[in-house]
Amino acid sequence: MKRILDEALIYEILSVVEEIPEGKVATYGQIARLIGREKNARLVGKVLSMSEFYGSYPCHRVVSHNGRLAPGWAEQKYLLEEEEVPMKDDAHVDLALCRWDC
């Protein structure tokens, strides 16, 4: 039986995001694997898009599998630069240098 998106799952995802250290980033897929749902990277993205309703979490530290920043969220780049996360270009972090090793 499939697990539905419930508050327990939402907080499970957000608790992993909360553990990402300053200056590091994780990918949506990496978070999905950490909660035992390796094929649900998009679900992680959906939860993060709603995170403001559940508290304050460092969602800016989550990027796509290739380091791409979230489209339409200009503040993400600024927040990552404030933490001195290395960028490849205007839209990608350098995952080789800043991926969270968990």
Rank of each mutant, 00 (worst) to 15 (best):
P58T: 09
I20W: 02
M50N: 12
E18Y: 05
A91L: 02
V47R: 14
V85S: 01
C59N: 13
Y78C: 06
C98L: 11
V63N: 03
W73M: 13
A41E: 10
I13D: 01
G55P: 09
Y57T: 05
M87K: 03
D89G: 00
L34E: 11
E12W: 01
A41L: 05
V63L: 04
L97A: 14
I35D: 05
R68L: 13
R99Q: 06
I13L: 05
W100R: 07
Y54N: 10
G72F: 12
A91I: 04
K88D: 00
P58W: 12
G67N: 02
R68Q: 11
I35R: 10
E75T: 08
A74M: 07
K46G: 08
P21R: 11
H92S: 03
E84H: 08
C98H: 08
I35Y: 03
L14V: 02
M87F: 03
Q30K: 09
V25C: 12
K77H: 05
K24M: 02
A70V: 12
I10C: 01
L80Y: 07
S15L: 06
D6H: 06
W73A: 12
M1K: 11
Y57E: 06
I35Q: 08
Y28K: 11
L14N: 01
D101E: 15
N40W: 15
W73D: 15
E82T: 04
I13Q: 03
E75C: 01
E22Q: 10
R99F: 09
V47W: 14
H92T: 02
E18A: 09
H65W: 12
